[in-house]
Amino acid sequence: MAYLINCPYCGPRTTDEFYIKGDASKQRPDTIGDGTLDTWHDYVHIRENVRGRMAEHWHHTGGCRQWLVVERDTVSHEIYAVTPASTWATSRKGSSTAARKKPARKTAARKATGRKTGGRAKT
């Protein structure tokens, strides 16, 4: 990409409405304390920097203000999928309770991307 992002809530919107944070592949560690510094360093600093399909956090700042995970190709700039970050995070945490809490978002996401987002495996 990127020129147009198909926001699950707002439809296709141009890139200048968005703020881009970066790589969404890593999960924030859920442990702290002695011996976890390397894990945290890896989360905060180390990047796989994929040549090809990668997932990236985008924020629809000039629209619905939702964080999205944009899966796209870093060489061709093709966009494969746009998923609400909350759906993405929930599915990766494997928490089904959280997903149940937000049926509206899940539906919106599914409608817009035309694919099931609930059981996404880590890519």
């Binding site: 703020y19 944070k21 969404a24 924030r28 956090h57 924020h59 700042t61 203000r65 939702q66 964080w67 609400p84 970050a85 909350s86 759906t87 993405w88 995070a89 929930t90 945490k93 928490s95 309770t97 959280a98 809490k101 937000k102």
Partner: peptide, 18 residues
């Protein structure tokens, strides 16, 4: 202000949606 708002939205939506 704008940055902090965005960070808060990120913390909830991307880190702790539960």
């Amino acid at each position: 202000a704008a940055e902090t708002m965005r960070d808060i939205e990120f913390a909830h939506q991307a880190l702790w949606p539960e």
